[in-house]
Design a protein around this nucleic acid. Structure first.
Lengths: 341, 341
DNA sequence: CTGAAAGCGCTTACAG
DNA sequence: CTGAAAGCGCTTACAG
């Protein structure tokens, strides 16, 4: 077992000072060719690598990004991490992942934990509970301490910082319009409770699209799901008791559940009922029939968020208060759950 | 903007020494009740939190776990991270995630990056390329430096360390036996190339189950997929050109692709062809028909791996060479893709 | 060209 | 009861 070697040990072995070793390894012109080579050879032999923690303390930067998301088992969030990772690694940054589990308290604890010097900045998406409580003090605090934050997807207007979002309302509008254009009138909406920001925005898009098409909003066709884990019965109930020609679901879980409920009842998709989902994930692709969705490119969102954060971290004028909101474009991926015209 | 406050600043404000402040905050009995209260009040007011990096340097431990996996967008790996996170957080540890993207080079780079003091230990699953090359020097090196490693799922016998696995061969055996017991004889196998350890083991289980049931192995019914992203044609081809009653697939992607190919050809699942997959993920659950799978509890595997790692990290006798291999039990989740007897 | 010193933010054995 | 000193592993302005 050969433990990691330090500058101190090298200095001792070679009978020079620590400063000399440090400078030699950095190819400082202060050092004689001779010593430099000797030190470098020795360092290579012992596979010297500078200690990151010491560097972090010295430089006051960790080259690490903290990412806080509600869940990792949601495909969308996993793709975002993947996007962040890519860009981060390209720039020599590591990524610490913390999960809030949709809990306000866990979100706060995680942020405080990471804010104590472990990372240089945050990339985050709000937990449901945080959105419900509208308590963002933990985020304000971190920002006030001078640590940059980039929010994505589930963001809030109450916090001033860089953001990466999609135009949820517009994307939903387009999706519903597509259904209308295909001739559907009785279009149901399966959405989240209103305090989930993106759910609310997508609901708005749905309503706008119908109004704009002179279709009357039928409250009976709008289902707001509180508990995502037990959405089956509610969705089955909706399909069973209402005359529905098409469904717009604000995420792919609701979409696939709607399809399975329809099939169970004996309806054919898309012949008897068409379905459009949101967030183009693995479920939509592999469902039978596969599901037409509004694609929300998580890789791109994560990549963009990382880019914005790193740019801010490496900018000269630290306290630039000019925050940007980047809107990632979406598009409709047409699959089997909607008929071709 | 109020920057983070340090011991030094508190000491200056209160006109005491840094040592006194440090001790006061730690409730050291050395300090007078008076000073202690004064310091604590001040610290609270300024929301003092010790700097993690400084603590890490001092204590030579970071309370951070590094996890290296091939992909995060694979549901199984996401669940493992989730499991690691839970247990890690319970014990005050953070988790740094690095993705190898199935690349040997990225795996090596990531490990070296994290091994330079950023973390206390690794939890990892080998990249495909690493398994193919059988080059594990980066792992040996890390272990030799005294940094513990726990491997899971895609492990190797060439490295001595703690491991968390399932009994892949046995689980596959059971799955295939179940098909045999349901009366199927012409059972196809869709598997990975042999260098993927778990693919190979599951293949072995398949073969053993057939041999044990006196069914002759038909090489034409065994499909080894190299490129997972383009498995469609190969699978479609298999189903089209062979007489098959049932399929055992070594992951859920192959399983769902097999189902979609069957449906496309006009076969009914499970009436015309039954399917069992492996790794109980979101796809299996939401496919239509839903897929019977061998469940591989990622949360549990991740949790166990984290537990083993943390135990080793916090053990007294650092250099305990007694490594354990923990086998997580699996079971068959029966769904619609196999008929009930 | 080389090295001692100060410093990043903390802890703790030791002296007074 | 308080504080100076040494140290974790590094960097860098400064002295010689």
């Amino acid at each position: 077992m050969k433990r990691k070697v330090t500058l101190k040990q090298i200095a001792k072995e070679l009978d020079v000072s620590i400063s000399t070793v440090s400078k030699s390894l950095k190819d400082s012109p202060e050092i004689s060719e001779d010593t430099r080579q000797k030190v470098q050879a020795f360092a290579k032999l012992y596979n010297y690598k500078p200690n990151n923690i010491a560097l972090s303390l010295k430089n006051k930067k960790t080259k690490t990004i903290g990412i806080i998301i509600p869940e990792i088992v949601h495909h969308f969030f996993a793709t975002v991490i993947s996007g962040v990772e890519n860009v981060a690694n390209e720039h020599g940054y590591n990524v610490i992942v913390c999960l809030s589990d949709e809990s306000f308290d866990k979100e706060v604890i995680n942020m405080e934990m990471l804010a104590n010097g472990s990372i240089d900045g945050f990339i985050m998406s709000l937990s449901k509970e945080t959105q419900q409580k509208k308590d963002f003090h933990h985020i304000t605090e971190v920002i006030n301490q001078g640590m940059p934050v980039v929010m994505f997807d589930r963001v809030t207007n109450d916090i001033l910082c860089d953001k990466v979002i999609i135009d949820d309302s517009q994307a939903a509008y387009q999706a519903v319009k597509t259904l209308v254009n295909k001739g559907y009138k009785k279009i149901a909406l399966i959405t989240t409770v209103d305090y989930v920001s993106v759910g609310k925005l997508r609901t708005e898009g749905y309503i706008k699209a119908l109004q704009n098409s002179d279709i009357k909003i039928d409250e009976n066709l709008i289902l707001k799901i509180e508990d995502i884990d037990h959405c089956d019965e509610a969705i089955e109930n909706l399909i069973n008791h209402q005359e529905i020609e098409a469904i717009f679901a604000v995420n792919e879980l609701f979409a696939v559940t709607a399809i399975k409920a329809s099939l169970k009842i004996g309806l054919k998709v898309p012949e008897d009922i068409a379905v459009i989902g949101f967030t183009d994930g693995i479920i939509s692709k592999y469902s039978s029939p596969s599901i037409t969705t509004v694609s929300q490119n998580g890789i791109k969102m994560g990549g963009k968020a990382a880019k914005m954060l790193i740019e801010r971290l490496e900018r000269e004028d630290e306290d630039d208060e000019h925050y940007r909101t980047e809107v990632i474009e979406t598009h409709l991926v047409e699959r089997e759950s909607t008929p071709t015209l």
